[in-house]
Simulated scan of single mutants.
Amino acid sequence: MNDEQRNQLTSNWRIPKYARDQLWVEGDSGAGRASGEFGEFELPAGGTSPVTIYWRDVHKGAALVRLPWRADSLDWDGGVRIGGYVDAMHITNIADGELTVAIIYLGGQPLRNSLRPYDTAADRETPEFMPSFHAALASDVTETISTWIAPFDSPLTSIAQDAMQNNMRLHCFGRLADESSGWDRFFALPIILESMTVFGS
């Protein structure tokens, strides 16, 4: 796909069926709806960098992730990265009561695509990294609310509850639930919470 006005979200990872036609891409020139298993889209004035992926609607939906523009494919893997505050939590039983989960309502903005939550082995020769809550935010994106799913007995759920009670800031990292997981049978936007950075209030 070499037309600079056209691109796709992914080339290797396949977008789950429940998320197809629910994703929008916005650059500084406008927005376009992504469709199909690879999320093909077109922006009004060609490729722009960076772009933001939204769920359901650019103006009313949840911002999921900020990505750099790449020709042919943005190489998205379904990852979601948001910095913000826990506004609310709901605890419920699903799967005929066999599983108790927390739905975490996170209000915030996407994290900059260059952010890494910690130094990995590959960063051993680079300057030491220290997380910064505000510097990591894509501050030009309006705050939105997204829903994150975690098992009730997960340490991540306990930390999220503590953050809500003490107004602590978070960087949350997760991904859209795999199609085979079945989470989409229970939740409209199933983002699986995988890790987080907690900042003091």
Rank of each mutant, 00 (worst) to 15 (best):
Q109M: 14
L115W: 10
T147E: 04
L170W: 12
R169E: 14
T157E: 01
N93V: 00
E143G: 04
S114M: 11
F152W: 08
M130T: 15
G107H: 08
P127M: 06
I103K: 00
N167H: 12
A135E: 15
H134Q: 09
Q109T: 15
F129Y: 14
V141L: 05
Q165I: 05
E128C: 02
E125T: 15
N167F: 06
M168A: 06
L111G: 09
F129S: 13
P151S: 03
W148A: 04
D123F: 05
S114K: 11
R169D: 06
S114I: 15
A121I: 15
I145P: 04
R112M: 14
W148I: 07
C172K: 05
E125P: 01
P131F: 13
M164T: 04
E128I: 13
S139E: 15
S158V: 03
N93M: 04
I149D: 00
F152S: 00
S132L: 12
P127W: 06
L137I: 14
H171Y: 14
L99K: 04
D96T: 14
Q161T: 13
A160D: 06
A121N: 09
C172N: 11
V101D: 00
A150W: 01
F129D: 08
L137Y: 12
G107I: 09
N93H: 06
D96K: 14
Q161Y: 03
A160Y: 02
I145W: 10
I91G: 00
D153Q: 09
Y118M: 14
S154C: 03
S158A: 13
D123S: 01
P151G: 02
L156D: 05
Q109N: 07
E98A: 09
S139L: 15
H134I: 15
E143R: 10
